[in-house]
Simulated assay, not measured.
Amino acid sequence: MTVLLDRAGLAALVPHAGAMCLWDELLAADETTVHVRTRRHADADHPLRRDGRLAALHLIEYGAQAMAVHGGWLAKTADGAGGARPGVLAAVRDVALHVERIDDLAAPLECSARRLVANAGGWMYEFRLHAGDRTLATGRASVILAAPA
């Protein structure tokens, strides 16, 4: 699969800096969907690890950051500047975690997310995180966007 943006390109699109920028590659994006990939979940110095483990609960943050990547990519393709308006994760719904932890996965972690709603006040997406053919988590998340400056 072709890489549209590498880690440096993704970092320019999202507010997450340094090690908290969780995705390494943008593989696909269009008006409603995004597909990203990373191998950083196996890093011993991952910033979300506790007691040497990375819990599946953190997949919600991965899903939310995939949404941020999509928003930033849309802003960049619309005006060339990149970076979406800042937002706050407001709600998660119907989250199903199919593993207990993700630090022990050998395969790259991937997320496919689809925007269900977009308006001036925010976004709602559904997401699926997987490693190879194995589904790790699914759910929906909503973001409330900051008022335009």
Rank of each mutant, 00 (worst) to 15 (best):
D51W: 09
D6G: 14
L97S: 11
A141M: 04
R115Y: 05
V92D: 05
L89K: 11
W123S: 03
T2D: 10
R140E: 13
L105G: 02
V95N: 07
D43C: 12
A66D: 01
C111E: 11
A146Q: 06
D104R: 07
A90H: 12
I102G: 01
M67C: 07
R101G: 00
P86N: 12
H70N: 00
H58S: 13
R114V: 09
L109N: 03
M1S: 10
L97T: 14
R50D: 12
H46C: 11
W23L: 06
L116V: 13
L26R: 08
A113V: 06
M20Q: 15
L109M: 02
R7D: 14
A149T: 11
A90N: 13
G83H: 01
T2R: 10
L57E: 09
R128G: 15
L109D: 05
A146M: 06
A118H: 03
P148F: 06
I60K: 01
G63M: 08
L59H: 05
P148A: 14
T38R: 04
T77L: 02
R134V: 03
A113Q: 06
E25F: 04
E25T: 13
A17H: 11
A56S: 12
A147L: 14
G52C: 12
R7Q: 08
V69Q: 00
G63K: 03
V14L: 02
G121Q: 14
T135W: 07
G82Q: 01
L89N: 09
P15W: 04
D79L: 08
A81P: 05
I60R: 00
V3Y: 13
D103C: 04
A106W: 01
G121K: 11
G80I: 03
T135V: 15
S112T: 12
V88S: 11
G63D: 02
V34K: 07
R7L: 15
A78M: 03
V99Y: 02
G72D: 00
H46W: 10
R53M: 08
L89W: 08
M124T: 13
A84P: 00
L145C: 07
H46A: 11
A96Y: 09
A120F: 02
T135H: 04
T2K: 09
A118E: 06
A81W: 10
S112D: 12
G72M: 00
N119D: 15
T33S: 14
E31M: 13
E100S: 11
A96Q: 15
A91E: 15
K76H: 11
D133N: 06
R50A: 15
D133Q: 09
T2C: 09
H70I: 01
G83T: 02
T32Y: 09
V92M: 10
A55F: 04
E110S: 08
T138Q: 00
A146E: 10
H41K: 13
D6Y: 13
L5G: 05
L129C: 12
L97V: 12
D24I: 08
L74D: 05
P86Y: 12
V69N: 02
W23R: 04
L13R: 03
A55N: 05
